[in-house]
Design a binder for these strands. Structure first.
Length: 255
DNA sequence: ATGGCAGGCTATGCCTGA
């Protein structure tokens, strides 16, 4: 059993890459972010041809999330309940094995102290409360997606340059820790020995070739799931492809 | 070195991303 998270930066453009990833890895569940696709235009038939079910929540131009799954999921939920938001950033569903899967695309925040940063922090606080209430109902949970937070110094190519900058500020990192404190493990951080930890590289400045990246895509899981988790891998080869997403997929494999 | 690169839009430059 395996599960993937991938910010595809346009599902339309990246569809061939998705097909390759499915051919290579055949994950049981794929969580996509930044589909940038309205629900009416979601390529459902193409996804079904690849033998996946799809639960999707999108909008024009920006954001958009989807859960693709080999088995039918249930209790599908869009957005954060009771949190007013016109941006499509969350889809949650329960897998055939009873695990609650929460696919998230956290706001970027633009710059520390910008209006969007304030939105990011309030958004994340609402998300924490949502996860807190989810944890009362489900004992087995995986939260995965683009968190737009690099939790630790080692998750950034130049920690000093990024000190208190967007994605690395104390306020963002404290909220990330608060989320973990609800009973989640940062699976990549806990499971890997590799020093290659980045999941995102800027399109500009030859950042990928120069290994100038960040780790902002995460797979968090409750202890029950973590104990079954054998490996978490960053599929860097997809960042090397022609016309790549700026994010690499991250895959967790379970026993 | 605050630029650069990519995607979408009813576009032909501007917004957003991180």
């Amino acid at each position: 059993m395996s599960i993937v998270t991938w910010n595809v930066n346009s599902l339309k453009v990246r569809f061939p890459h998705l097909e390759t990833m499915i051919k290579d890895c055949s994950p049981d569940v794929i969580c996509l972010q930044e589909t940038k696709t309205e629900d009416a235009n979601f390529p459902l038939a193409d996804i079904e041809n690849l033998d996946y079910f799809a639960s999707y929540h999108g909008q024009k131009t920006y954001n958009g999330v989807a859960i693709l799954s080999r088995e039918r999921v249930h209790e599908v939920q869009f957005g954060i309940p009771n949190f007013e938001d016109n941006q499509a950033r969350v889809v949650a569903a329960t897998s055939s094995t009873g695990t609650r899967i929460i696919n998230v695309y956290v706001p970027n925040g633009e710059a520390v102290d910008s209006e969007k940063y304030v939105y990011k922090l309030s958004w994340f606080r609402a998300f924490i409360e949502y996860v807190r209430s989810t944890a009362k109902t489900y004992s087995s949970i995986i939260i995965l997606g683009d968190f737009n937070i690099a939790p630790r110094g080692e998750d950034v190519y130049d920690p000093e340059a990024f000190h208190e900058k967007l994605l690395c500020s104390d306020q963002e990192r404290t909220l990330f820790e608060e989320l973990l404190g609800l009973g989640f493990l940062d699976a990549f951080h806990e499971r890997t020995e590799s020093s290659e930890r980045f999941t995102w590289w800027d399109y500009r400045m030859n950042a990928f070739r120069r290994k100038l990246g960040l780790r902002i895509d995460h797979i968090l899981m409750t202890e029950s799931e973590f104990n079954r988790c054998a490996e978490v891998k960053i599929l860097k080869e997809f960042r090397k492809m022609e016309r790549p997403s700026d994010h690499a997929p991250v895959m967790a494999t379970f026993i």
